[in-house]
Design a binder for these strands. Structure first.
Length: 730
DNA sequence: CTTTTATCGGTTTTT
DNA sequence: CCGATAAAAG
């Protein structure tokens, strides 16, 4: 049996991977380059510990950053190891959540505490700003939520910040926020970690219990840990527990969210003896793609150092198309995708990546027009949709009447005549009598605190909750359905026409989800929850609810952040322009450019076979057309690795190009040959614009385009699109 | 209190 | 240019 397991975990590992998997040092840092098989190493390590070193399933803890990664790990482990579901595996937040559920009392939380997301957090901040009569122009709720979040990432509460930096003007707001959450039984994402950290710190017996339990903790994507997560990790590990962390400093792209690459260096210095293993063989991309990516990332300072190599041969050159504008850019990408399909490639192997979400708009337009089916990943997630959150807020309030945030969300959704004024009255009473908003409303209904429309609305609202209380312990799906229908949400969204229909669909989907979540006994056990309604809410809190629909053959559109960890045979990275990528606002930070470059590195290393970079010389910004310069990242790729299609662009850039020999000759000087059907100076006829004179040529053959001066204007035309004919005029 | 009109601002987002 | 909020009219 041992021999069989050994065969399983060893299978197909290279020397570096094997040495990482079998290290006997208590601490190990695996610097795993993109596509170097890091998930495989993590799985193998777990199997090795379980089968070779005699660790029990309860003695191992595996931490990831995404539910997806945790799910994949669990899936792959359970394929070879039958007790996989006894291993604690989850996201940092998921495990912290579990600790808080198990020890809610010790953590000073009500059993029914609710996890709130960033939007709820921001709404709460908005309310606090209003209560403190602070204009959002002075300090926006967004900024406040961000500031609080960042401090929690550092492990600092309001009083800690005051001690460290003195009284900052927004600290009373942070304090009010903490208080509000405590009273309402709310826990935000940062709080999950901070509270569970304090839980362990304040209860030595509990800490001793967990430190005695775990013999090794494995961490995926270690470069993304923030200070608090790192402290949390070290506290939980204590003296006797091994730490096996896997990461890549070059792929740290969440610095803006508190991730500290410095944790990697600190780990090697404070956790000794530490085995450092580099995984540099890449099993994903061609050597050309890797060399290009290596060249770009080499411009960053202070790296751990790592050079990826591939055994897959050189492959084709990296393409760079300098488009006229974003429509031309999208059109060229479509052309590339078509060609990929013609060679037998599947659409599911195609990814179009961009720096910011809004860039998907034009791409979607053109892809739709050209009939290429696609899927946009990211953007609005299921459990973030307004209608879904509305329905869940009713549920939250039913479960926990103290939840003022939930109350504020639904009291007038759908509209029932309780606007700003009524809400202020309720809030005042609540504050004076130390009641929750719901209790205050109930009191006012009985004692005649409302009049007319408001009374009508408030009493139906209060009555609804009494009614639902009876369904409270029954079937969650039935309850959800009752809530959605009887609250009026269903009809409310039904009025919205076409968009309303979609919203109603989502509400139906929510009812389905409710019936599915109830069956998950593993989750119930893990979170030590018996109340089915509470279990449902706890489950949805940390879950985006996206269903990966991979069954259909669709091209994938997503931000580079969303693409991390994924791979595609054919990849286009768009908007490679100064100001877009690197993003101008990101450059304000000291480390901003480095992080943008790491993002570029991540983008490039997604590609297995074919990598196309595109840039526009003109882009519609906030309404106005602006001239763009090609991104410095394109310039950082050695000329011999790149095939420029919009050649004239490259010489026009210059501002960031270090050496002039890199820029190509202007395309106008390209000699006429069979690849250039309309050389400069030739006369052409266009079906719509009429007669014209070619004033510039760019690119070759089907990829090419020409600039033609017609009688009314001068236009760039794609040869693949425009039907030009030679005009043998006099 | 709700609907319309003006003004403003505009990254990335695993949890 | 678009979408999200804030004052002004219904």
């Amino acid at each position: 049996m041992q021999a069989k397991n050994q065969a399983v975990w060893q299978e197909g590992l290279n020397d570096a991977q094997l040495s990482a998997v079998t290290t006997r040092l208590p601490y190990a840092l695996v610097l795993a380059g993109a596509g170097s098989g890091k998930t495989r190493v993590l799985i193998a390590r777990m199997l090795y510990l379980l089968s070779e070193r005699g660790y029990g399933p309860a003695q191992v803890l595996a931490l990831t950053f995404t539910n997806k990664a945790a799910g994949e790990m669990r899936h792959r482990l359970s394929a070879v190891f039958p007790w996989a579901n006894h291993v604690w595996m989850g996201t940092f937040h998921g495990i912290a959540h579990r600790l808080l559920r198990l020890h809610a009392r010790e953590a000073d939380l009500p059993d029914s505490f609710t996890v709130i997301d960033s939007e709820d957090q921001q709404r709460l901040c908005k309310r606090i700003l209003r209560e403190h009569e602070i204009d959002e122009k002075v300090l926006s709720s967004k900024t406040l939520a961000y500031l609080i979040g960042r401090e929690k990432d550092q492990g600092r509460r309001a009083h800690d910040v005051a001690q460290a930096y003195g009284e900052l003007p927004w600290l009373p707001l942070y304090e009010a926020y903490e208080q509000q959450c405590q009273v309402s039984g709310l826990v935000d994402f940062g709080e999950l970690l901070l509270r569970s950290y304090e839980l362990l710190l304040k209860h030595p017996a509990l800490l001793a219990h967990y430190q005695g339990r775990f013999r090794e903790i494995l961490v995926d994507e270690f470069q993304d840990t923030n200070r608090l997560q790192y402290q949390w990790l070290k506290l939980l590990a204590g003296e006797g527990c091994g730490l096996f962390v896997v990461g890549d400093d070059d792929q740290s792209i969440y610095g803006w969210r508190g991730a500290e690459v410095a944790n990697i260096r600190d780990f090697t210095e404070t956790c000794v003896p530490c085995d450092i293993v580099r995984l540099e063989q890449n099993y994903r991309s061609t050597q050309t793609i890797l060399s290009a990516a290596n060249a770009v990332i080499a411009h960053n300072q202070g790296r751990m150092g790592k050079d990826l190599w591939s055994a897959q041969g050189e492959g084709e050159k990296v393409g760079h198309y300098a488009a006229i504008n974003e429509f031309d850019e999208a059109r060229y990408i479509v052309q590339g995708i078509r060609r990929w399909q013609e060679t037998g490639g599947a659409l599911a192997d195609v990814a179009v990546l961009y720096r910011s979400n809004h860039q998907s708009r034009v791409l979607e337009q053109v892809l739709t027009r050209e009939g290429i089916p696609y899927k946009v990943t990211g953007g609005m997630r299921f459990f973030e949709r307004a209608e879904v959150k509305d329905a869940l807020a009713y549920t939250r309030l039913l479960l926990n009447p103290q939840d003022d945030a939930a109350f504020a969300r639904v009291i007038n959704t759908p509209t029932r005549g309780l606007g700003e004024k009524s809400l202020a009255k309720i809030a005042l009473l609540a504050q004076q009598q130390h009641l929750s908003l719901l209790e205050a409303t109930s009191w006012m209904v009985e004692k005649g605190g409302f009049s007319g429309k408001a009374l009508q609305g408030a009493s139906t609202f209060v009555a609804l909750f009494k009614q639902w209380q009876a369904l409270r312990s029954g079937d969650v799906a039935l309850l959800m359905e009752a809530i959605i229908k009887e609250s009026g949400l269903w009809d409310f969204y039904g009025q919205d026409g076409l968009t309303g229909e979609g919203r109603q669909e989502n509400l139906t989907e929510l009812v389905n989800a409710a019936s599915q979540y109830q069956v998950d006994e593993d989750a119930a056990e893990a979170l030590a929850i018996t109340d089915p309604l509470l279990l449902f809410l706890a489950q949805t809190a940390l879950d985006a609810g996206d269903k990966g629909d991979t069954e259909r053959d669709l091209a994938q559109l997503m931000t580079i952040h969303a693409a991390k960890g994924l791979e595609f045979a054919w990849v286009a990275v768009t908007g490679l322009e100064e100001g877009i990528f690197p993003l101008s606002r990101a450059l304000e930070d000291a480390d901003g450019l480095s992080e943008e470059r790491r993002l570029m590195y991540v983008a490039m290393t997604r590609a297995k076979q074919s990598l196309l970079l595109t840039s526009c010389s003109m882009r519609r910004f906030h309404g106005a057309e602006s001239l763009m310069q090609v991104s410095r990242f394109v310039q950082e790729i050695p000329t011999e690795l790149i095939q420029s299609i919009g050649a004239y662009q490259r010489s026009a850039v210059s501002a960031y190009s270090q050496s002039s020999d890199r820029s190509l000759e202007p395309a106008a000087s390209v000699q006429p040959n069979s690849d250039v059907p309309f050389p400069k100076g030739s006369k052409v006829i266009h079906a719509r614009f009429g007669e014209g004179l070619v004033v510039a040529v760019d690119g070759l053959g089907e990829d090419g385009r020409v600039q033609v001066r017609f009688c009314d204007a001068t236009r760039w035309l794609l040869l693949s699109v425009a039907k030009l004919e030679r005009w043998q005029g006099e």
